[in-house]
């Protein structure tokens, strides 16, 4: 069993090119579980946790968060606390302390679980996933990258380096929420994030993502359009929620879980928006 541990990005990429079938390993919280369940039988491992570029969070013109940054590091990062507290908040709801010690941002993206907790936050933060292949780097928004449950559109030989996102401005308002069956170790029954900017009492650049509701991450453009340029308002939030619920129905059709999720999505979205607006007042 080969267990490769590249210590530089170049090395990682060339090893990946050499062994495209090897399993990329970071925190192991998904890989090792899938192996146990017989859903994965790695031929070899490519451990990316020693690649320095993937371990960083830096704040330049944009913020870069490396793929091998753990949820604990997201949660505790002073940079994120200042410029993207939404991502830290989402990370703090992942699994348990032990899972947060290990689970990484890149793993959360690559596994493409519809219930992933970081994905709605990254989507609402308009994060671009930075992907490096032998040919160079490309960037993709999550709704384009993730095509369905477990389906992250990476080409062979490509590696997720991390994400870039714009720092929140002074006027940014945000919220994150998660419905779980219990208060820890919970897979999201629904989660969601919203980011907007408040200008002269009006909402601008609203970005809204509700997770565990559709097969892949989606921005709810219809609801966003309803809110754009409007004043925060309870009824408006509810109408936005209805738009979200309608969009989920269109995306998924009626399913066993729709009986619960469709009406909940209305009020859950409204509450996300209210919380974001309230955060502005505080």
């Amino acid at each position: 069993m080969e267990f490769l541990r590249p210590q530089a990005l170049e090395e990682a990429l060339s090893l990946l090119a050499e062994h495209p079938a090897y399993t990329i390993l970071a925190g192991g919280t998904d890989v090792v579980v899938r192996r146990r369940e017989g859903r994965l039988a790695p031929e070899g491992y490519l451990d990316v946790t020693l690649v320095p570029e993937l371990r960083e969070i830096w704040n330049g013109e944009s913020i870069f968060v490396g793929a091998a940054v753990t949820c604990r590091e997201l949660e505790e990062s002073p940079i994120l606390a200042a410029v993207c507290p939404l991502l830290a908040a989402a990370a703090s709801t992942v699994g348990s302390p032990q899972i947060r010690s290990r689970a990484t941002l890149g793993g959360n993206v690559a596994n493409a679980s519809p219930a992933a907790d970081l994905i709605p936050a990254l989507t609402a933060a308009d994060a671009q996933v930075v992907i490096q292949g032998r040919q160079g780097t490309r960037r993709a928004a999550l709704p384009d990258l993730i095509q369905g449950p477990g389906r992250c559109a990476l080409e062979p030989g490509e590696l997720i380096l991390g994400v870039v996102l714009e720092p929140f401005r002074e006027t940014a308002r945000w919220s994150f929420d998660k419905i779980g069956r219990r208060n820890a170790l919970a897979i999201a029954r629904m989660n969601g994030a919203v980011v907007l900017e408040e200008e002269g009492g009006q909402m601008r650049n609203v970005r809204l993502c509700v997770g565990a509701a559709a097969r892949r991450p989606v921005r709810f453009r219809g609801a966003e359009a309803l809110l754009e340029g409007q004043n925060p308002d309870k009824d408006l939030f509810r109408r936005a929620g209805e738009a979200v619920s309608q969009a989920i129905l269109e995306e998924t059709g009626m399913r066993e879980s729709s009986r619960y999720k469709l009406p909940v999505a209305v009020e859950f979205t409204a509450r996300l928006l209210e919380n974001a607006a309230r955060r502005g007042q505080a």
Binding site: T29, V32, D47, G95, L185
Partner: peptide, 27 residues
Amino acid sequence: CGVGECGACTVIVDGEPVNACLYLAGQ
């Protein structure tokens, strides 16, 4: 449990609590 859901195998690695059942020796 073997899947990181119970914490019975929790150990500390470099100061952080982890589930030993999900931590590979190669790391």
